[in-house]
Design a binder for these strands. Structure first.
Lengths: 145, 145
DNA sequence: CTTGACCTTAAAGTCGACTTTAGGGTTTAT
DNA sequence: ATAAACCCTAAAGTCGACTTTAAGGTCAAG
């Protein structure tokens, strides 16, 4: 099948599929005589796998590694298992951090509800923030914050 | 004072301070005859404010807006308040999402503990993932995932 | 008088996973 | 024959908040 069909099956854009191919995630994709890519069900499986792994927080390098292990007959379970554990640990700290951050914001907000002060150098809501409580460097990835 | 002193007081790097200046966050910074920037306590206040606001998840455009409101005599409270509420709402959904994601990973992990299957097309740990449960597009910002 | 520690700028690089652009070939239908 | 709807590539752009690089002034100490 051609790329468009792959896209409608997987829900990926054609540029994304080509990008994955360019990154070597799909192995050697066959080509028709006119240079069009021809995909088979194995490619669909891989693309669906990539989608799920991305959803779990795996990056393309990790995914490529898993795919290559599988291909070369090495069982990827240990690797996946290890990374899953790391991700869970990371999520734990993230959840705690966000929880604290949320409580901090809520505290500021409720202070702010009663008295609109505009005291402080610029804005006392913000200036009253506790010192870099958990990890000042980790921020939420958000377009829509 | 010169930039280095500012950096040791605020904990920011000199390139960061110059960057903030270049983005117009510091207003008109004075210069010595040799073109060196001269900062005063007002600049320190602003830089500390920027640090705290960044920690609360404000981006530089939001911060600039708050700073400009303050400067032009407009009280920034309503704006800050509104944005704080948005951030809290966003954190709420993030926390829930991460919690679900964590539970999902843990489920997979405990499945995986007993039987190292390597069934499935590539890896059944990953392939068993539920369909884009909360919001497939939002991922955690992490260098260290 | 030279070394080293400061200061300056503009522009490019970084991170990751794409998307977009520019330019061009192929196929199918009318 | 021409338009629409596909396909291709390489390279640049995107997002944000910086950092790094390159190239160059300034200043105090020894």
């Amino acid at each position: 099948m051609l790329i468009k069909e792959v896209c409608s099956i997987t829900g990926l854009s054609s540029s994304t599929v080509r990008y994955y191919d360019s990154q070597g995630l799909l192995g050697k994709v066959e080509r028709r005589s006119n240079n069009y890519r021809i995909f088979d069900n194995g490619d669909i499986d891989i693309l669906n796998f990539i989608k799920k792994a991305r959803n779990l927080g795996f990056d393309l390098d990790e995914i490529k590694k898993i795919l290559m292990m599988k291909k070369s007959g090495v069982i990827p379970c240990n690797y996946v298992n290890k990374r899953l554990k790391e991700k869970i640990a990371f999520l734990n700290t993230e959840i705690i951090r966000l929880q604290k951050e949320k409580e901090n914001l809520e505290k500021h907000l409720s202070d702010a509800q009663q008295v609109c002060g505009c005291r402080g150098k610029v804005c006392h809501y913000i200036e009253g923030v506790e010192e870099e409580h958990v990890n000042a460097d980790l921020r939420i990835s958000s377009h829509n914050f």
